[in-house]
Computed example of a mutant assay.
Amino acid sequence: MTDSPAARGARAAARRLAAAHGPRLEADVEAALHARGPAQYADPASLGSLIVSAAALAWTVYQDLRARTERPARAVVTRRVRLELPADGRTSGDERDGIIAVVVDEVVTDAEE
């Protein structure tokens, strides 16, 4: 998963979120990317793992929706990721939703390039 649209989206989201969550976020995301296989879900105990899990799910949801429509709406992808990604209990709902929105935006942007 280290060079998939989900991985590229996770990296881009980490760059965007690093100002709010600290410079270590990019390294945490990179570590989470290398710690998991393509079908595994990482332990969402860290923000990096949350971003990688959200990116993997966003890519899966995007591909599923793309089978039905050429350009799935970001809002639909975001809503499904919010519903399907288990809450980690360590991130507030608003913060989690904001992270998911950034991750989906980056994954979809990468997929549509």
Rank of each mutant, 00 (worst) to 15 (best):
A14W: 13
R96Q: 03
H34N: 12
T109R: 14
A18I: 08
D94L: 12
S49Q: 11
E84D: 07
R66D: 01
T69C: 04
Y41G: 10
A10Y: 03
T2F: 08
Y62E: 04
G9H: 07
V103T: 10
R24S: 10
T60A: 05
D110P: 00
D88F: 04
S92Y: 02
Y62G: 02
A13S: 10
A56L: 05
R68H: 14
V103Y: 11
D43A: 14
L50S: 00
A7W: 06
L50C: 02
R16Q: 15
H34K: 12
A32R: 09
A32V: 09
L47A: 05
A75W: 04
S92N: 06
V107D: 03
A20V: 05
A56H: 09
V81F: 01
R24D: 14
R66F: 04
V81C: 04
A75R: 13
A111V: 02
A14K: 11
G48F: 06
M1E: 10
V61E: 01
E26W: 01
P44F: 01
V108A: 03
A20I: 03
G37V: 04
A56M: 10
S53C: 14
D3V: 15
R80S: 06
D110A: 11
R90F: 05
L83K: 06
Q40D: 15
G89Q: 04
Y41Q: 12
R71W: 14
A32T: 10
S53K: 01
T69H: 05
L85V: 02
L85N: 00
S53Y: 01
R8H: 13
R96A: 11
Q40W: 10
M1R: 12
R36A: 15
A31Y: 03
L33T: 10
D28F: 01
R82K: 07
R66P: 01
V107I: 03
E30S: 14
E113A: 14
A111L: 14
R36L: 15
S46I: 01
A101F: 13
A55Q: 02
R90N: 08
A39P: 04
L33E: 06
D110Y: 11
V77Y: 01
L85F: 02
A6R: 01
L33I: 03
S53A: 15
E70W: 03
R66W: 01
P86G: 06
V108P: 00
A39V: 11
D97Q: 11
S53H: 06
L83H: 08
R8M: 08
L57S: 02
A39C: 09
R79E: 06
G37D: 14
T78E: 13
A54M: 07
W59S: 11
A18E: 13
D97R: 12
T60N: 01
D88Y: 06
